[in-house]
């Protein structure tokens, strides 16, 4: 398939995709499966490159549209590549220093489950539990972590009802997904993707301010221009 045609296809499909994702947030998980698979199959018909689908959804550097990590585990093969890649961002080969955690529902005969921050936008439990200001609300949902303010009290770990805040004994800090999207680039079966989040004007401004601050204070890492908090400086 020619590059030109792929481009046109993606242009015409993006609105459909967006609409589907909006529907999903209203009606729930089943719908994601149906619509998403349906679209994927349709794209396959046109030998549309799957890698390209992922790229299309990736957050562009400097974009003012907030994104958050989403998953659909039906295609998960349990390879744990996401966890291994995530821990790399903290300078480790590890499963414990990863913010995304793959396990089974109950033994390997059962489906895989993904334990990761769901990017709460209201009533952010870990944020409310934090007494030191080490966590602050992240545009698009979830939190951003500042290691310099953390006293390793682990209240955030206890507070998260879905167990998505991991704790690294080695680094003596919580490990929380910051929705940077690196894992989505390496998931071999497209179980993970970044979803755009609609934000009100003030929040967009906050994102811009944050992006500006980030670009001033930290040097880009090899794998992402949005390094994780607490990441070892290379």
């Amino acid at each position: 398939m020619s590059e030109c045609l792929s481009l046109k296809l993606s242009e015409c499909l993006t609105p459909i995709l967006n609409e589907c994702l909006t529907l999903i947030s209203i009606r729930g998980q089943t719908l994601i499966t149906t619509h998403f698979t349906c679209i994927k199959n349709f794209l396959k018909l046109f030998t549309f490159d799957r890698v390209e689908i992922t790229r299309k959804k990736k957050r562009e550097v400097g974009s003012t549209v907030a994104k958050r990590l989403r998953y659909n585990m039906n295609a998960c093969i349990g390879c744990q590549t996401c966890s291994l890649v995530c821990s790399t961002l903290l300078g480790q080969h590890s499963l414990s220093e990863s913010a995304i955690y793959i396990k089974t529902k109950g033994g390997l005969q059962s489906p895989y489950v993904c334990v990761v921050c769901v990017a709460c936008k209201e009533n952010i439990a870990c944020l409310e539990a934090c007494r030191t200001g080490a966590l602050r609300a992240r545009p698009g949902g979830g939190v951003l972590f500042d290691k310099s303010k953390c006293i390793s009290c682990r209240l955030c770990v206890k507070a998260c009802a879905i167990g998505a805040v991991q704790y690294s004994e080695k680094l003596d800090q919580p490990v929380i997904c910051r929705h940077c999207g690196t894992c989505t680039r390496f998931c071999p079966h497209q179980c993970l993707w970044m979803e755009e989040v609609e934000e009100i004007a003030e929040v967009v401004e906050a994102i811009e301010a944050e992006a500006l601050e980030t670009s001033k204070t930290s040097s880009p890492t090899p794998e992402t221009t949005h390094p994780k908090e607490g990441e070892a400086k290379s």
Binding site: V51, S87, T88, Q92, S94, S96, P188, A232
Partner: peptide, 26 residues
Amino acid sequence: YGKGSHEIKDRKAYFKAFSDIHQKAL
């Protein structure tokens, strides 16, 4: 039970090699 970790020596070099092979595999 493997809950330990290894600190990466050269993150840039490792990540590049990993990404290249991962891409090739796919």
